[in-house]
Amino acid sequence: MALPDDLRELYQQVILDHSRSPRNQGQLSADSCVHIHSDNPSCGDEIDLYICFNDDGSIYDIKFEGQGCAISQASTSMMTEKVKSISREELIQLIQDLQQTVLGQGEIQNPEALGELRLFESVQKFPQRIKCALLGWRGLESALSKNSLSRS
């Protein structure tokens, strides 16, 4: 009984590795930090994101806590490794490119910036897992708009 190819693509080694040992775990409590809670009520997956922004809107530090399936936890863990020290514009582009990767829609503007995140294109074959792959990223989007609002 060989493992189906689709399954191997969905749960690539790097994804399994991040789900078993998520990076950037924890909380950030500085006043300037934004805390966003995201969940999928239908499956119970939860992500708490803690993000500190620089004055220019780029991310200075990011941590998360969460529980849920391998896809939601790995996707968020990999996200935390990508978003530090890039400009706000690059960040917005990255979020958009990741969403298009997962949904299989539109053109990816900056494939190099995505790097290993391109693995999540395998989620296209598992439509019921799209919301898992995007859970942390939706939280990041909310954090960005919360941060801009607090500055405007």
Binding site: D6, L7, D45, G68
Partner: peptide, 12 residues
Amino acid sequence: HPHDLVEFANTH
């Protein structure tokens, strides 16, 4: 996680 397990089972 249950969802990963059920996904794995479904592919079988």
